[in-house]
Design a protein around this nucleic acid. Structure first.
Lengths: 217, 217
DNA sequence: CCCCAAATGTAATCGTCGATTACATAAAGA
DNA sequence: TCTTTATGTAATCGACGATTACATTTGGGG
């Protein structure tokens, strides 16, 4: 009965193609649309996200004060996925050897960045929104950094490192993986992608080279 | 006589405030305006560049088919300056020691990137124009890379390196400086800029750490 | 010297975007 | 049920990239 085309507009939610006036969870759908657009390589516009959510161009601004806020929310979601994968990799790594854990961290970092370049870009580049505007993003990132600092401190405590000055090691390590990820992102690895896994293999070599460079031997 | 306000419009070029219909070298002025806008942290728009050149919004398109072409031309100019500084630094470096030359290269690279972040971004990021669209930029960059490869090959020939596998060393070195430059650019060095030279000192430490890691000892 | 063609600038216009405002509709609670 | 609040729509604005038709200047061949 409710499927009758002549029924009054109330209870219209039952018919599949007629979306109810209120969207289920527009905020979430907009974030997903933004991430999807980025992953497709398209430039992310609020209007296009609204279009994908089948909603008017002004609707997103009920949930985000401006475009940057949408991008920041998308970045937070991407960062959450990133962090989840990193922590899974660390869960599989041996607890005893800090340098192996360091290696596992770097590998997981680069693997994710290689496979989700656009999301990595949103997280890292600070161009889509003011860099300190998302406290969650900042805190999350700080925690990951603290993780690597702890691993390096453990390694030093076990006498595994050649130098006791941890700060340059920490910075260099971050710069190395960050730079590798961004080189891939910015198109500085011209034709490697043709053979699948070539870049990830090179990432592994580079990480091992770095660890060999800082390790005592 | 020519200053008379009733004089005919011809020979108007004499009066300073009345620009002649034809701009002197609009193409060059637009490139400079684009670089200046980038350096100021503003987003570069064709219209704003035209405004700074005191010219109509459509005029730039007589010299560049689209915005990306203007950005590419600006990138070429920035890359020219970048390369000039690198080569000057290499000119001052000792010709005999390839690792010292490598170090000088890295230092000059990072110094320039720290002091001209927006220009470095335009050069490197491939977001402002298709990455292979400028043959000059591509060639120029390839030559700089070839320079570092030569330095590493020389170092290996002199038995200065711990490993004979140069490719990972080359990639890691690029990733390291590129990552350091981009971390600075993307706001990942929170409050270091307050004390002038702090970042550049850290850059030096990081480069030395890398060289110590690859050198035989 | 003049005229014409090429180069180069202007004016007007289009479609897209971010953003704001006034209004409409649904949901929730007293 | 009535009213408040949340959430969507419609209309509009200004900036932007881009295109088109037109205007002005310049420079070279008769």
């Amino acid at each position: 009965m409710s499927a009758s085309p002549t029924s009054k507009p109330r209870a219209r939610r039952q018919t599949l193609e007629a979306r109810p006036y209120h969207h289920g969870d527009l905020r979430r759908v907009l974030i997903d649309a933004a991430l999807q657009l980025a992953a497709e390589g398209a430039d992310v516009s609020v209007r296009e996200a609204a279009r994908r959510a089948a909603v008017s161009p002004g609707a997103p601004f009920r949930h985000f004060p401006n475009r940057d806020a949408l991008m920041a929310a998308a970045a937070e979601e991407a960062q959450r996925r990133f962090r989840t994968e990193i922590e899974a990799a660390l869960g599989d790594a041996p607890a005893a050897d800090p340098l192996l854990r360091f290696r596992a961290f770097g590998l997981a970092y680069l693997r994710w960045a290689m496979r989700n370049p656009a999301h990595f870009e949103i997280i890292s580049t600070g161009r889509y929104f003011a860099h300190g505007s998302s406290v969650e993003l900042t805190r999350d990132n700080a925690e990951l950094i603290a993780l690597t600092e702890q691993m390096l401190a453990d390694a030093a405590a076990q006498g595994l490192l050649r130098s006791a000055d941890l700060k340059p090691i920490q910075i260099a390590g971050r710069a190395l993986v960050y730079g590798f990820a961004r080189m891939n992102l910015d198109g500085h690895f011209p034709r490697w992608g043709v053979e699948e896994g070539e870049i990830e293999r090179m990432a592994e070599e580079v990480i091992d080279l770095f660890i060999a460079g800082i390790a005592k031997r």
